[in-house]
Amino acid sequence: MASGIAARLAPVVEMAESAEKAAAQRLGHFQGQVNLANSKLGDLENFRAEYQSQWIGRGSQGVSGQWLRSYQYFLNQLETAVSQQRQSLVWHENNLNKARETWQQTYARVEGLRKLVQRYADEARQLEDKREQKLMDELSQRLPRRDSY
């Protein structure tokens, strides 16, 4: 009986394993998105730092009002881009966290189902062992005994 239950649960376990695999792939995808967003943010921050160091070098030589306005305008655009990229990174990190939670839940479900199936398989094996032992005991009792004197 327990062996039949374990066999009937096999498709359920397979479906749960499929869902867990898909969740793991999504988790990997979102981890890649976080890495990419983080890299872009780093690139923007490095570019901003370089641009600001150019200001220091150029500013010490004296600059025109037009150059200063252009510098300020571009620096504002760069700050906006950095801010937007930070928001993008936070958004991707939230997606990653949700994907991690989903994967953890599906993984726990798979593990629970595997343990359940294993328990039913163990019960079936124990029942079969008991049946075999009982049969062996009955057979040994039916055999004529040879008493040696």
Score class of each variant (00 low, 15 high):
131 R>L: 08
37 A>W: 04
110 V>W: 00
143 L>S: 11
116 L>T: 09
7 A>P: 03
139 L>C: 08
148 S>Y: 04
32 G>Y: 00
75 L>A: 12
66 Q>N: 07
119 R>V: 08
67 W>M: 10
92 H>I: 02
107 Y>R: 09
63 V>R: 15
72 Q>I: 05
60 S>N: 13
94 N>Y: 04
18 S>R: 12
130 K>H: 11
42 G>Q: 12
91 W>H: 14
23 A>L: 04
83 S>G: 05
25 Q>N: 06
32 G>Q: 09
70 S>R: 14
57 G>P: 12
85 Q>T: 06
46 N>G: 15
1 M>F: 00
113 L>I: 04
30 F>T: 15
36 L>Q: 14
142 R>E: 04
32 G>A: 11
4 G>M: 07
123 E>L: 05
94 N>V: 06
21 K>M: 05
33 Q>E: 13
70 S>K: 14
55 W>G: 15
52 Q>F: 00
56 I>V: 08
79 E>P: 05
105 Q>A: 04
97 N>Q: 13
72 Q>M: 04
95 N>C: 05
88 S>D: 11
115 K>S: 12
80 T>R: 14
89 L>M: 06
1 M>D: 11
126 Q>L: 07
118 Q>T: 06
39 S>I: 07
63 V>L: 13
136 M>C: 05
137 D>V: 03
89 L>R: 10
69 R>T: 14
89 L>D: 07
